[in-house]
């Protein structure tokens, strides 16, 4: 780790570590700290209020956010909605932003839209809700929308939004949609990798503290073997996601190499999520299955996030399609690169 990323890691850890993650909903105090430190719009250009950092830096911040179960729309603001608005040349509203997906009736002149958008992340807290409809980027003013609260498995806001009225709109190039999807998947995969670390850390700590049969349960080989299996999953998720961030930095989101690396990252982190959550709960016994215990903050996120921005089934199918369409001679170069 370079000095800069070490500093960034320490900064992120201190900010997320100080936040109260046991509540639900948007953490306004945390968001304020993230804005003050430039982490809220880390990768965006300066003219979009961003810090112009690399995705490798975002990887450090997002894994720390996942590890600490941060209640903030970082992926949505920085990697998705903010980027999309900037790509369309629409000025960014201040504050947290979010991205909606779904179908709307949009007028031919793109000045009015109507319809219902489901499971919009953090909609109730967003200063701007953005979506891509065909080649048009739409920005809705939340004040003019009807928002009904909903959540994902981790009780993060996933709201229903009824749109009826005027929108700000601007066109973007066709490739933006594919890049948007990759950005979301990379961000979510990094959060997953962080949450998996958090669950493993909690289980290791608990195994060292909890005494049964006269010794800490972590002294039993049966428990050690399970934690080692979880550690391997955490390592794989971490390697795949940090590599994907680097490939995105080096090659850009339009490159085939980035598409493959992100698909690998989301698939691998998604597979790790289930294994790590299961083992972390098994090690914690009944207490980890209660509301009073903090383990749920990371394990419910693992269960929620693995299905968001494309489950491992969806991304694995994309990889499998590329592999089977490419045939046997293209398989190894896909993994190790074509010189």
């Amino acid at each position: 780790m370079t000095d800069t990323s070490k500093e960034l890691s320490e900064l992120a850890e201190s900010i997320f570590g100080d936040a109260d993650s046991s509540e639900t909903g948007f953490d306004a105090a945390l968001w304020e700290s993230l804005e003050q430190t430039g982490l809220a719009r880390l990768t965006l250009p300066a003219d979009a209020g961003g810090s112009e950092a690399e995705f490798a830096d975002a990887a450090v911040v997002l894994t720390a956010a996942g590890r600490n179960a941060a209640r903030a729309p970082l992926v949505e603001t920085d990697l998705q909605a903010g980027w999309l608005l900037h790509a369309a040349g629409i000025p960014l509203p201040d504050g947290p932003l979010t991205l909606a997906t779904g179908d709307l009736d949009v007028t031919r002149t793109v000045t009015r839209a109507a319809g219902t958008l489901h499971r919009v992340p953090w909609a109730r807290a967003a200063a701007g809700i953005v979506m891509l409809a065909g080649d048009q980027v739409l920005l809705f003013d939340p004040a003019a929308l009807t928002i009904t609260d909903g959540t994902n498995l981790a009780e993060e806001p996933r709201d229903t939004v009824v749109v009826e009225g005027e929108v700000t709109a601007a066109g973007v190039e066709e490739h933006v949609g594919a890049q948007l999807r990759l950005r979301g998947a990379l961000g979510r995969a990094l959060l997953l990798a962080g949450a998996a670390e958090g669950a493993l850390a909690a289980a290791v700590r608990y195994a060292g503290e909890r005494v049964q049969f006269g010794r800490p349960i972590g002294r039993f080989q049966a428990v050690q073997q399970q934690l080692a299996i979880a550690a391997a999953e955490v390592a794989a998720a971490s390697a795949a996601t940090s590599a994907a961030a680097r490939v995105a930095d080096a090659d850009g989101f339009g490159a085939a190499s980035t598409r493959f690396a992100v698909a690998v990252a989301k698939t691998r982190a998604g597979e790790a999520a289930g294994v790590v959550a299961r083992i972390a709960h098994q090690v914690h016994g009944a207490i980890g299955f209660t509301r009073e215990h903090d383990l749920r903050l990371v394990t419910t996120r693992l269960w929620a996030w693995r299905d968001e921005d494309g489950s491992e089934a969806e991304w694995a199918e994309l990889i499998g399609t590329e592999v089977l369409d490419g045939g046997p001679d293209a398989l190894w170069p896909l993994i190790a690169g074509a010189p």
């Binding site: 698909a263 690998v264 698939t267 597979e271 990889i319 089977l324």
Partner: peptide, 9 residues
């Protein structure tokens, strides 16, 4: 395709 993709991932 999912099974192959998962192995490759």
């Amino acid at each position: 395709r999912r099974a192959v993709g998962s192995l490759v991932a």
